[in-house]
Computed example of a mutant assay.
Amino acid sequence: MSYIEIKNLTKIIKGNKVLDNININLSNGKIYGFIGRNGSGKTMLFRAICGLIRPTTGEITINGKIISNDIDFPESCGAILETPGFWDNQTGLECLKNIASIKSIINKDIISQWMLKLGLDPKDRKTFKKYSLGMKQKLALVQALMESPNLIILDEPTNALDEESVLILKDILKKERERGATILLSSHNKTDIEELSDKIFKIDVGKVKEV
């Protein structure tokens, strides 16, 4: 059985079909790339899989459970969707500790290890509002990855990252795939998608086809 099954997924917003009868199956231990122009439906599809929007018709099943029916959100999921948001007046480590406290499955040491992996200093007293764009992106990546989720959804994960950080991220994602995670990526950089993905889908006007 596929880890994610999307059947006849359609989403209509203000009379517009932003997702149009999508049918795809996604397995464990694979990286799936999604390419398409701005407004093509990539982010909307990711939001639907995360349970942040409900389908107009069709359904999304994750690990045998239907989103918005059996469960509201995927049970084990880390995601970056659009602009990362954290607490402006807290340090990076404080922000991540707050997020980790929701599930309480990792401790400060694991959070610190992930920060170091992605080039952030857990001892840095700089608050989030003083972070550069690249640092903010790295912090968002840490929150998505630090709990070793079964499902990883990253919308434009290399935004604002320097070349070295992109290479580090690629290595991390390959290791997460080996761990058995299902990884969904979107990127304007087709080279990154082609290098990492086991399968690539193109989204255009809400329709999805395999490349």
Rank of each mutant, 00 (worst) to 15 (best):
I4V: 15
N8T: 03
I12W: 04
K17E: 15
L26G: 09
K30M: 07
K30S: 12
K30T: 07
I31S: 01
I31E: 03
G33E: 08
I35K: 02
N38C: 07
G39F: 09
L45G: 11
F46I: 13
C50W: 02
I53A: 05
E59P: 01
I67C: 03
D72K: 13
P74V: 10
E75Y: 02
S76M: 02
I80R: 00
E82M: 00
E82C: 00
G85T: 14
F86S: 03
N89P: 01
L96Y: 05
K97D: 13
A100Q: 05
I106D: 01
K108W: 00
K108E: 15
D109K: 06
I111V: 11
S112Q: 10
M115H: 06
D121K: 00
K126G: 09
K129G: 07
K130M: 06
K138E: 04
L139F: 09
A144G: 01
L145K: 12
L145Q: 11
L145H: 08
P149L: 02
P149Y: 07
D155I: 08
T158W: 05
E163I: 13
L173C: 07
L173H: 06
E178T: 10
T182E: 00
H188N: 13
D192F: 15
I193S: 04
I193T: 08
E194I: 13
L196I: 14
K199V: 15
I200Q: 08
F201G: 01
D204T: 08
V211P: 07
